[in-house]
């Protein structure tokens, strides 16, 4: 019995896809936005990114060591979480806030619920909202070119005219990664080409937001204002990098549609009538919570519909 070959059940071949490769693609896709953030806000932005990413990776590593679990930092998902969280923080965020946010994202939202694939909310956004509620002042202390400044959303609310080119390029006040629509779209295109994401959730989300604000907003379907709504307030980074996070978005085809429409409606509501000017983060984490329910009611009928009547 020396010359036996390997046996296993079929299939015997596997695609080259792996979690690590997917995460690496997301990191690559976020680099333009991160680079622009550093260019736009200076070295303090680089420091925020560094501290947040390091905290996230360390937290995962320490937790797994402590709990005697296999260490999974090699899958790079903690790097993605750290990077996304950093891009959602102002460049002026102090180091301890970055650390606190990173620990909250990884420890509370991700690891305590079972690690990768088990978190019930997008960890980066949950941490951002946690920091927002805890340190509202520091989280909204926008500084641009050395002086305190308002975000376009706040300016528009108080009657300023939109400056679309500025919004598109991104040289204005905001969180590190949300300002440059151009850089975010470059990253999104990369992910679409690499088939890491599909167009469905981001496009339906953005479209619903636009239609909702067009119907209920002050300016109707004025293209300039609606474009401003798309380009600013973190809608693009939310739609292309966080709303469609695998773990916290539905896997069923119709579930994705329902989820994306819900996101758009909630974002519209928060933007038009909410206390803060942008509503992307809250819209996403609330919708995240509804994903199990949405999936439950959108299990597709199988090909040939056999068995559909049973159950």
């Amino acid at each position: 019995m020396s010359n036996l070959y390997n046996v296993s059940a079929s299939p015997h071949v596997r695609s080259k896809a792996s979690t690590t490769k997917i995460m690496l693609d997301v990191i690559i896709a976020l680099l333009p936005a991160a680079g622009f953030g550093i260019y736009n806000f200076g070295l303090s932005a680089a420091l925020v990114i560094l501290i947040t990413v390091a905290t996230c990776v360390c937290t995962e590593f320490c937790y797994e060591k402590l709990m005697k679990l296999p260490v999974t930092i090699g899958d790079l998902s903690a790097v993605v979480t750290g990077l996304l969280l950093a891009l959602n923080l102002p460049a002026s965020a102090p180091w301890w806030m970055c650390v606190l946010g990173g620990v909250f994202a990884i420890l509370v939202v991700k690891m305590l619920f079972g690690g990768i694939g088990q978190n019930f909310m997008n960890p980066a956004l949950a941490a951002r909202c946690f920091l927002m509620i805890s340190f509202a002042g520091r989280m909204t202390a926008w500084v641009y070119d050395g002086v305190s400044a308002a975000t376009p959303m706040a300016k528009l609310r108080s009657g300023a005219t939109p400056e679309l080119l500025t919004y598109f390029i991104g040289n204005y006040a905001g969180t590190i990664g949300e300002t440059s629509a151009l850089c975010l779209l470059i990253g999104a295109c990369y992910l679409l080409i690499k088939k890491v994401i599909t167009w469905k959730i981001p496009v339906i989300y953005v479209a619903t937001t636009v239609i909702f604000i067009g119907i209920f907003g002050r300016f109707g379907f004025d293209a300039k204002y609606l474009l401003s709504e798309v380009l600013t307030g973190g809608l693009l980074i939310g739609a292309f990098f966080m709303a469609n996070d695998y773990t916290t978005s539905p896997i069923t085809a119709w579930g994705q549609v329902i989820y994306a429409v819900l996101l758009g409606v909630l974002t519209g509501i928060f933007r038009l009538w909410g206390a803060t000017t942008e509503g992307v983060s809250y819209a996403i984490i609330i919708s995240n919570l509804l994903v199990p329910l949405i999936e439950k009611v959108t299990i597709p009928a199988p090909f040939g519909k056999a068995g559909a009547k049973k159950a």
């Binding site: 390997n6 296993s8 015997h12 071949v13 596997r14 792996s18 979690t19 997917i22 999974t72 899958d75 998902s77 690690g115 990768i116 694939g117 088990q118 695998y246 773990t247 896997i251």
Partner: peptide, 12 residues
């Protein structure tokens, strides 16, 4: 491929 691949957690 089967022997070479390691199972990890589902990321949905």
């Amino acid at each position: 491929d089967v022997a070479d691949s390691k199972e990890t957690a589902c990321i949905r």
